[in-house]
Amino acid sequence: MAKKLPIVPSAKAGSMAEAPSGIIWREQHPVIGDKCNQCLECIMFCPEGALKLENGKVAVSLELCNGCGTCAFECPQKAITMVLEFSGDRGIFPLKEGKS
């Protein structure tokens, strides 16, 4: 005897990536330098999944990054630098050095 179950709202898989929250309060973002040797450690340690291997190079998705700095601290090659910025709905405005 099959019951007629009510239709309940459910979320589309992975839909939080469409409107990430971290970007609103980000203060700095990583920039990957030439020293990167694709060891992939930063990708494992990123809480947001903002780092990805694209065309054989590690790339940052600034839509997802919330600027914790874990990748820059953990990078064995010290290839990642954190750049201060303002971010939000209107885009990213890098800060000049010494004005933080």
């Binding site: 990123c46 997802l64 914790c68």
Partner: peptide, 10 residues
């Protein structure tokens, strides 16, 4: 992962 609402460095 992508887009989760965790704190920085969660």
């Amino acid at each position: 992962g992508p887009g989760n609402a965790g704190c920085r460095g969660c």
